[in-house]
């Protein structure tokens, strides 16, 4: 009965138009699955048994990517309800739990972000412990380091958006450091060098912190800037870098293994 049904579905024109090969029960068809599907095509058809062992990679790179996708989906849902203006941001966040059906999207988004920070650290830890940064993978390790920073920035820019005490003070503490930038911060050593006739060029009104916050303090301007950074700028950078990262994993000979 079931067999008949699956045979019918598999034989239908609709099914055949989607999947261009038979069921993945033979080696040939299993290879075809990987080649015909654009997403699975990220992977090679065959891999070394050592490289895909769970205890070797801990799947941490893959899970980091998966969590990035979770964040993208839940983030889009949150954007339906959230307005990045100081007057409404806080109330919108409260409403997410009170008024929105199945209101755990914010929770999943927040815990997913924390989890992504953890998995990315563990991924780096694994890559180091297997010596996978050694030639020919030096460049991809470098891309990875930038991805790590981008992951932290994603998390950090999102931290401000609830617009509560926790948010603005954590971001105040974090961005206070920027005013001490040695060259472009108004309290950094360099700001005293860029002085002509007593006119200071790097001041609290035009230094790097001002650019980051859109003002001298964490305020309305900061909220909008962080929102745009969090929802558009940083994710786009992350996606581009991930594309490069995955491409290079393949081009550098797949998951590393003994030479």
């Amino acid at each position: 009965m079931l067999k008949k049904l699956t045979d019918f579905v598999r034989g239908s024109q609709v099914w055949k138009s989607i999947f261009r090969h038979g069921p993945p029960t033979t080696a040939r068809n299993r290879a075809m699955v990987m080649l015909a599907n654009v997403f699975l095509h990220l992977h090679p058809v065959r891999a070394r048994a050592s490289g895909i062992r769970l205890s070797f990679t801990w799947c941490m790179g893959g899970l980091t990517f998966f969590l990035f996708l979770v964040e993208t989906v839940t983030g889009i849902l949150l954007m339906f309800y959230y307005r990045p203006v100081a007057a409404s941001a806080f109330n919108d966040i409260v409403a997410l739990r009170e008024d929105v059906p199945l209101g755990i999207m914010r929770e999943i988004h927040r815990w997913g972000a924390h989890a992504m920070v953890i998995t990315v650290w563990l991924h780096m830890f694994r890559v180091f412990m297997t010596g996978s940064y050694k030639p020919p993978r030096e460049f991809n390790w470098g891309i990875g380091v930038v991805l790590l920073v981008v992951t932290l920035l994603l998390s950090f820019t999102g931290y401000l958006l609830p617009w509560d005490q926790l948010a603005i003070w954590a971001v105040t503490v974090g961005t206070n450091m920027a005013r001490a930038h040695p060259a472009i911060g108004h309290e950094g050593p360099g700001s005293n060098l860029l002085v002509i006739d007593d006119i200071q060029f790097v001041t609290s009104g035009d230094d790097i912190r001002y650019a980051l916050l859109g003002g001298r303090f964490v305020g309305e301007g900061t909220l909008l800037r962080f929102y745009v950074l969090h929802c558009i700028a940083v994710p786009v950078i992350a996606m581009v870098l991930m594309a490069v990262h995955f491409w290079r994993v393949r081009k550098d000979g797949g998951i590393s293994g003994p030479l």
Partner: peptide, 18 residues
């Protein structure tokens, strides 16, 4: 890892399912 290195396996199903 070297012992297993020479052995190649199909990514479907071994990796995809993991």
């Amino acid at each position: 890892e070297a012992d297993e290195k020479s052995r190649k396996v199909l990514v479907w199903p071994d990796l995809v399912y993991t």
